[in-house]
Nucleic acid binder design. Structure first.
Lengths: 250, 250
DNA sequence: TTGTTTTTGAATGAAAATGATTGATTTTTG
DNA sequence: CAAAAATCAATCATTTTCATTCAAAAACAA
């Protein structure tokens, strides 16, 4: 059974049942567990599903809320710490860019509401921003379903209208040699441009992003400062030599 | 049974019954007590429920719904009728503009999902559109908190990139002499422009909008066709002489 | 064909989830 | 009130699932 067939099958089962177990997929497709795992990993990277222990789950198309499992996890606590620190960097009068992404969303409750202007391409941020009565501008363009982000030519064009004091970006990979990377080419271009339009750029990343490489390159390490939570001595040294890095400790 | 499945199940039972006993959950899920306990602990950490001795209780957080349930239920039926008819006008291959507004939102479930392209300035539409996997473009610009619409210079500028087969607009006032009106000048400009970029334009309006005048003028009656629900003979005559009007009857 | 890349399946140890057990705590019962 | 019963948190061994690695198989190109 060919890879795209399996992927289609998995997605179909997922659509029907909401959750699938790896063992069931192994039986149905008559392939090895390894192969199914690889399939799930790929599909998750493309934001087609959420991997869970023992299988995979359909991801709810909801525009906000993280899922039940992640809401209670340590992971969210860490994200929130990073986000809170990042939000603390914003001063009254700033105009800032908020990249699409869940870590960045966590910044919003901590932003100084008064006198700041926010520009974003993240659909998941809007309601939180409006709720706080923050002056918000949205990029125009194509609304991508999987990542809930505005992308495309239109988005790049609308970015041109703005300049930022600070921008806050999410990335999928941080690597000493390959810099900041993300799976989607279009999103990479937006991130790139936003960084170039900003006086200061910050990348928000938990420790799982380090030494990872995703498909599309955003830029070299020195183009942005990194805000993260944990990092062992060795890695910290590696990265400190290439860019500014702030480790937020618990 | 996978962890998220159990979590979902627990929450569902909780929603129905208010409280659940641990033993019942053990029986239903056919897992051990330990596991259920762990589940409850996690869910409590995520603020999904309150643990009580012997089980768990629902947490009446801010689960309030759009509270105007009573008054609008009849109104909603009417809106939905209008919306459904309007959606029926859209054909595969069309590119359409959806104005911000609650009546227009009701169109989305009835739109032919395949092969259409939607452009909108209505933030309230996005999640419904994405859920239906409809190709969606959003105008860029300022996000207005009260109306959840994108407005401003940026929005006008991004409109220029598009042309539409059909556009569907909401208005606050329809008047034989003063035409279509809406309270906000900025929104009026957007609506105006969208209509001018569209081959055919439709205004969705329930009967309460007729003979009303709001502050900012969008255009004369003849610039768009009207889709409404009820309209007495006399009025219908008045308007039919000035534009196309479709009365959707129950 | 031959050499190269991609895909696959198996093996490994690490990580996570589970179920049973313990003794402490709370609730119920007499 | 005190004893009994039920529920609890904490711990540990076991099982399951996981990521990673590597070599074989398959698909591909020259």
């Amino acid at each position: 059974m060919l890879t795209p067939e399996r992927h289609k099958l998995i997605m179909q089962l997922l659509k029907e049942k909401g959750v699938v177990k790896i063992q069931d997929l192994v039986d149905i497709t008559e392939t090895s567990e390894s192969t199914i795992r690889r399939d799930l990993t790929q599909l998750e990277e493309g934001k087609y599903l959420k991997r869970i222990h023992g299988g995979a789950a359909r991801l709810q198309g909801k525009l906000q809320e993280p899922s039940m499992s992640e809401k209670s996890s340590r992971n969210l606590q860490q994200k929130r710490q990073i986000a809170q620190y990042a939000a603390g960097l914003v001063e009254g009068g700033d105009s800032i860019y908020l990249d699409a992404g869940s870590t960045v969303t966590e910044m919003i409750p901590y932003l100084p509401a008064k006198e700041i202007v926010v520009v974003t391409n993240g659909l998941m941020h809007i309601s939180a921003l409006l709720e706080r009565n923050i002056k918000t501008f949205l990029l125009g363009g194509f609304a991508k379903e999987q990542t809930k982000a505005i992308i495309g030519r239109g988005a790049l064009a609308s970015l041109e209208y703005y300049r930022f004091d600070k921008c806050f970006m999410g990335v999928n990979g941080i690597h000493p040699q390959f810099g900041y990377t993300t799976p989607d080419q279009d999103e990479a271009m937006i991130k790139q441009k936003a960084i170039s339009l900003s006086r200061e750029a910050f990348v928000l990343a938990d420790n799982t992003k380090f030494s990872e490489i995703a498909f599309a390159k955003i830029g070299e390490l020195h183009t942005a400062a990194i805000i993260t939570n944990e990092l062992d001595e060795e890695q910290q040294e590696t990265y400190t030599s290439k860019t500014t890095i702030k480790v937020v400790t618990a």
